[in-house]
Design a protein around this nucleic acid. Structure first.
Lengths: 244, 244
DNA sequence: GATATTAGTGTCATAAAGCCACTTAATCAA
DNA sequence: TTGATTAAGTGGCTTTATGACACTAATATC
């Protein structure tokens, strides 16, 4: 009988145990046309061939150092976006969610700005497109349990904007306070009081003026950018209630 | 060539792909002797034999309907506790965290009351015991990346008590407001102002008086219990700043 | 140059927390 | 029995951050 850890590992066969299928799935969010959109791909392969799904797939145990790597790799493969907010949300599991067997998927969400993005259709999908989240309500069906996963990611996003500065990740690098407010309003699904909003954001020191202005058909607005604090999201002392 | 999903599944072999080892690990917290404690087991088997670790292990694809089931099963196996707060925290992954190969573990935390608990040592562990979390600082080493997992669970707990009623799950079914306040103070690691605390808790309607009193060497205190709301944790409108 | 439009501010009201001294109800020691 | 001690519980003022909303400011357009 072997006794040391080395002996143990020499005789260890990963397939002696029944392992679940383990994958990563991802809700990539952006704001387009005044609405929250999520990226969907039409599956090219069985199972659930022809159905719309969240991008995702197997871990590449050679390329990926961690699940975060897998998620970031998927994001780059589909959008070309390298830097953005990527966050683990939750895991989903069970015998029935995938017909291939007992499976686990680790769900991620990513927030990206809708600028200069060309969606990349690779061999794994027939089609790829942005879809407004509110249109995936009851009518549209998604592959596997992806609607539940999308819901969890959407809920996480909605809950986080109550007390963090997360939504700045959905905007391009420079933006006006009004644009930021509109983004908050889209996510909160209700209007936000202008003065409260500006006071809150400006007193938190998460933004700084770029010096430039954005001019339009009316009074020009100051442009702001995020102060670099290693991706830390500011926590507000109170939640944003929003006007009723 | 096969074409239908049925044909695809017939020919599908789960071991054609390199799957990561997937497990569940759990930080089971309780309050003992005025300190936050976590349950540790001494590993009986390779790898990391003889090291202290968080309880956890493989998914039983026959018994467990989901990872939540796996986590709850582990909790019952070690403590006998069936009803409690169990929450998924995060996943940890990589090639190096377990010498057996690329692995993923889904970390859970559980909050239980320290009453009538007999720890159950099964074949999988040599020893099982409560350990104050602050004693696992820099000195003590844990198996695998379990110290990082424990940290993540501890952080999640600390962040959640800022705005939720979660800590009630660490107390027995009946308790006084002072006991609850002490629990908050242990978790926040700073004193809490009595009046503010009581106002906050009482106006939130998460508790109700049992009618009974707890008598001690001084003025007796009212006993409270959690109002049953299907385990929902109340969200406070502001965070608890705590006295400085 | 008047008007429309959006940016941005002044100021008071409100809600929930902080602060801290006070009262209350019990035990304990003499 | 009474006064000291202790912990439970309250009164009431202060502080902080948000809500409400009317106001001023700067630009384009007609």
């Amino acid at each position: 009988m072997s006794n040391t850890e080395k002996d143990f590992l020499t005789n260890y066969n990963i397939h002696d145990y029944e392992l679940p299928l383990t994958t990563v799935d991802m809700a990539i969010f952006t704001i387009r046309d005044e609405a929250l959109n999520v990226l969907l791909v039409k599956r090219n392969q069985h199972p659930a061939k022809g159905k719309w799904a969240l991008p995702g797939g197997f871990i590449d145990t050679h390329k990926d150092k961690s699940l975060d790597d897998t998620a970031k790799r998927k994001l780059v493969e589909k959008t070309g976006v390298k830097i953005s907010h990527v966050e683990q949300v939750a895991s989903f599991s069970g015998k029935k969610r995938d017909p291939r067997g007992w499976s686990v998927t680790i769900a991620y969400m990513a927030l990206i700005a809708d600028e200069h993005i060309k969606l990349i259709k690779d061999e794994s999908s027939e089609e790829i497109q942005w879809m407004p989240v509110h249109q995936i309500g009851k009518k549209m069906s998604l592959a596997f349990d992806h609607k539940g996963i999308l819901n969890a990611c959407h809920e996480r996003l909605k809950s986080k904007i109550q007390y963090t500065s997360l939504p700045v990740n959905l905007l391009p690098s420079e933006f006006t306070l009004s644009e930021l407010q509109t983004t908050f309003e889209i996510l909160l699904e209700k209007p936000v009081e202008k003065k409260s909003f500006r006071r809150r954001i400006l007193s938190s020191d998460i933004l700084e003026e770029t010096g430039a202005m954005k001019s339009g058909p009316s009074r020009p607005a100051k442009l702001y950018q995020v102060v670099n604090k290693e991706g830390k999201n500011y926590l507000f002392p109170r939640t944003l209630e929003g006007s009723r």
